[in-house]
Write a protein that binds this DNA or RNA. Structure first.
Lengths: 217, 217
DNA sequence: GTTAACTCTGCACGGCGTACAGAAATGGTG
DNA sequence: CACCATTTCTGTACGCCGTGCAGAGTTAAC
C-alpha cells in the first residue's frame, strides 16, 4: 500500500514528546528541535507529519480537548452533567498547566473545541434555557471555567520544571506570601484563602454561583 | 549629576515601541531587535534600561494596569464602582489585544497588579461582603473579568496586523462562520449572537449575572 | 527490474536573546 | 585646565530557533 521506508516514529510520538516538554518547562520549552532530539531524529523529520510548529500546538490542544469529549455524561440532571464536564476539563488542563496558555492564546477552532462547545450548549438546552439565553449562558460558563483554570495556572511562575502538583502549590504559596502586608493589607490577608482556592470544592463553589445567576427557565 | 553621553532614548520609549509592536502583531512580533530598530539603536542598547525581555513585558503589564488604577471610582454605590472598574480594565485590555496573552501567561505579581486586586477587595468590602466571602468573590469576579477579555481576544487569529477594531470583528465573524452547521448545529446557530458578544452591554450582562450569584450581605 | 512514492538526513539562512569587551561622551574633582 | 570615574551605546559573537531545499535511502506497485 504505502511505499517508503519503515517509519521511525509517528505523529502521536511527536505529540507525546511535545506534551512532555510542555509539562516540564511550559510553552518556551516546546521546540521542534527538542522534539526531534527526544525522538532521536533530525528536526526536519518532524515536518513529515506536521506542516509547522503551530500545527503541532493545534493538534496538542485537540488531543487534550478530545480526552474531555471522550466521556459524555448524561445522568438526567443537567446541572450535574455540567458540573462533570467542567471538572473533567479542569482536571485535564491543570494536569498540563504548560498547555493552558496555548489554549487561551491559540485558537479554539478545531473540531474537538467545537464539539466541546456543542456539548455545553446541549446540556444547557436540556436545562430548559431558551436558545438566545443558552448561547449567552454558555459563553458565561466557558468564561468562568477557562478563566478559573487560567488564573490558577497564571500564579505559577513559568520558568523551570513544575510538573508535580505539590511543587505548583508550594511555588504559588511563596509567590503570594511575598505580598507586603503594609502596602496591600487586604491582598495579604487573603493569602491563606488563595492557597485554598486550588481545591475542587472551591472551583465548584464558583461554578454554582455562576449557575445561580443564570436566568431561570 | 549623571556622567555619560546624552540619552538617545528612555525606558518609556522602549515601552512605547514595545506596545506598538504588540498592537501590530501580538506577542510573537515583540522582539528586542525590533524595538531597537524602531528606536534607531542597536539591540543591546535596550539592555541599558531593562535586564532582559521579560523585564520589558513585566513593565508593559504594569503600565497597562497602572492606567486602570489611575481612576479611582467612589460613587458610593459599590456595585456601580465595581462595574466601572471592570469596564475600565476591559477597555484598556481590549485596546491592546496583543498584550492580553502576556497578562494571562505572565505573572500578575507587580505593584500595580496587587493594587488592582486591593481596590477590587476594597469595593467588595464596601459592599458588605464578609471577609472570607469577599476574597472568594473577588477571585470569582477577576476570573470573569479577565476570562471574558481573554476569550474575546482568543477568537481573533494572532497572525498579522489586527489593530483596528473593525478588522478584529471582521476576522472573528469569518472565523466563526466557518463552523459547519451539519456537524455543530447549536454552535452554528449561535454565530450571530457570538458576533454581538463584543458589545459592552453583553459584557456587563455577564458581570451582573455573576454579581447576582454572590452571597447576599 | 523499473518506477514512483514516501521517509528522513544534511546543509543553509535569517532571526532571536544576550554575554562580553570596548569606544565615546559627560560631570565631578584636582 | 587636565584627569577620571561613570554611564550610554556599539560591535562582535555564540548558541538556539523555525524552516526551505536538495537529495539519499527504502519500500510497494507495476
Amino acid at each position: 500500500m504505502r511505499p517508503g521506508p519503515k517509519r521511525a516514529f509517528t505523529g502521536d510520538d511527536v505529540l507525546d514528546a511535545a506534551l512532555a516538554l510542555m509539562d516540564a518547562g511550559g510553552p518556551p520549552a516546546l521546540s521542534i528541535r527538542r522534539i526531534a532530539a527526544a525522538l532521536g531524529v533530525t528536526p526536519n523529520a518532524v515536518y513529515t507529519y506536521f506542516p509547522d510548529k503551530s500545527g503541532i500546538e493545534q493538534a496538542l490542544i485537540e488531543r487534550l480537548l478530545g480526552e474531555v469529549n471522550r466521556s459524555a455524561p448524561d445522568s438526567g440532571d443537567w446541572r450535574a452533567d455540567l458540573e462533570t464536564l467542567a471538572v473533567d476539563l479542569r482536571r485535564r488542563l491543570t494536569a498540563h498547566p504548560g498547555a493552558v496558555p496555548l489554549l487561551l492564546g491559540g485558537a479554539m477552532n478545531g473540531p474537538e473545541a467545537l464539539l466541546l462547545g456543542e456539548r455545553l450548549l446541549e446540556i444547557l438546552a436540556r436545562g430548559g434555557l431558551p436558545a438566545g439565553a443558552a448561547a449567552r449562558a454558555a459563553y458565561l460558563i466557558m468564561v468562568y471555567v477557562l478563566g478559573a483554570i487560567a488564573l490558577e495556572v497564571a500564579d505559577v511562575p513559568q520558568t523551570g520544571a513544575l510538573s508535580p502538583e505539590t511543587e505548583r502549590i508550594a511555588a504559588r504559596r511563596t509567590a503570594m506570601s511575598q505580598v507586603p502586608a503594609e502596602l496591600f493589607p487586604r491582598t495579604a490577608a487573603s493569602v491563606d484563602v488563595s492557597a485554598a482556592w486550588i481545591g475542587t470544592d472551591q472551583y465548584l463553589w464558583g461554578l454554582h454561583r455562576v449557575l445561580d445567576g443564570l436566568p431561570a427557565t
